[in-house]
Nucleic acid binder design. Structure first.
Lengths: 229, 229
DNA sequence: CGTCCATTTGAGGTGGATCAACCCTAGTGG
DNA sequence: CCACTAGGGTTGATCCACCTCAAATGGACG
């Protein structure tokens, strides 16, 4: 399903190494095991891999943003996660990807062969442990998200989303959301209209400020935390 | 939080070894590593461990059934999974349990210390791999369940639930559900009344038969599969 | 036989979905 | 530089699937 094979850039990366120091996820693995990694880029809305497609690579976002999702036959979509710079995705213990992945905006990823990671895990128990911990981290997020999807109302979901994004992509006041309202809705189990109304209400209450629909500054995090239930 | 310490039964199990051959989950671990396991029993509705409690043990259901769940401060509850005979639960890569666990009915579990599993994983890469695979299996279930909670309607959720239970606890025609309607609702993100109405409708359509509210026989699995979307 | 829950069923309310304009902004091309 | 356009976002009006509240029924167990 890949339009171009990631192999194309192995050994001759199309992009220079990321200029910033990536925290660890890959480094903890590749550093230890001396694995070969490469880089690859995807344009906005380009598919990275499809649901149930063989899991040949594991990915780390260098620049950009990615959504993973499942589809029902009639087009209903549930986004499982948003992946931002530094995040690892596509890691499977089984043979196939359980969710599809697409670039939300133009995105560059680092990638490593699943088979080489598997091999490293068989040799180095620290690698094996790291793989387990990463999957457990995804599970934790999924468990929290089940509570949100099954039992929280629209405002609680949106407040939770804002706090999650604030924690993950912010740093200095303003956050620049890479995803559209429909993506947010499909992540939160809501419609894009309901997301928009919730954001408008929060704006009206002074809890957040806009500079363009996707440039948001949180003015009262404690209020949001109280709303998150 | 345990009313009685599981240690009490180490070396002198209160219950004879299960008379049937348990497939593998524990055996794949304990057999390999020669770990010490013990048994313990819980009565209906008894807490096995609480949310955020230190994860001292890993459990396998011998007889009975268990629910894991998260609570919101106002009492709303999301059940993450039902565990039936043979199922492993309470396995964490981190230090604490992310969901609470309770016996749905009188239940006997086998248990092993988390620390000894950790140790075994550090020595035997096969154990490490097995732990990873088990967590990945839980993640897969959670991902499927997010789609259900975020995007499926009531009838689709109930149909999905029936097929899941049919697959997991049946064998010969009739299935005996251990959980009440409220539990099913809290698993599916619905109210108990909505669950009841969906089951009644399926009964009226001849898709399933009752012999008592919790004794259900599926008469048309294909129809259910079509309903599951 | 009576009590206690679990379950079913009914009636009515509501939060979020749906349908439909309208607006805003970024990008495009004249 | 500006008019035009397209896609994303907002807002309004209405609908309906599911929730809530209430009552009746049924089954298990003393």
């Amino acid at each position: 399903m890949l339009a171009q094979s990631p192999d194309a850039s192995v050994g001759s990366p199309k992009f220079a190494p990321a200029p910033f120091a990536v925290p660890d996820p890959f480094c903890a693995l590749t550093g230890h095991a001396g694995l070969v990694t490469s880089e690859f880029s995807y344009r906005k809305d380009e598919e990275i891999y499809g649901e149930d497609e063989p899991a040949e690579y594991v990915y780390q976002v260098i620049r950009g943003a990615v959504r993973t999702y499942k589809l029902l036959s009639d087009g209903r979509r549930q986004i499982g996660a948003f992946l931002l710079a530094g995040d690892v995705f596509g890691l499977e213990s089984g043979i196939r990807h359980r969710l599809a992945a697409e670039a939300i905006i133009d995105t560059t990823v680092r990638l490593v062969k699943r088979s080489s990671l598997e091999h490293a895990a068989g040799v180095d128990v620290h690698v094996a442990r790291k793989l387990w911990r990463m999957t457990a981290g995804e599970l934790r997020h999924a468990e929290d998200h089940m509570l949100l999807l099954g039992r929280k109302n629209a405002m609680e979901r949106v407040a939770n989303f804002l706090l999650e994004m604030d924690r993950r992509l912010d740093g200095a006041g303003m956050m620049a959301l890479p995803m559209c309202r429909r993506d947010i809705g499909d992540y939160l189990g809501l419609t894009l209209e309901t997301v928009s109304r919730a954001l408008s209400q929060l704006h009206g209450e002074g809890v957040l400020g806009f500079s363009g629909a996707r440039q948001i500054v949180l003015r009262n995090r404690q209020r949001l935390r109280n709303m998150d239930a």
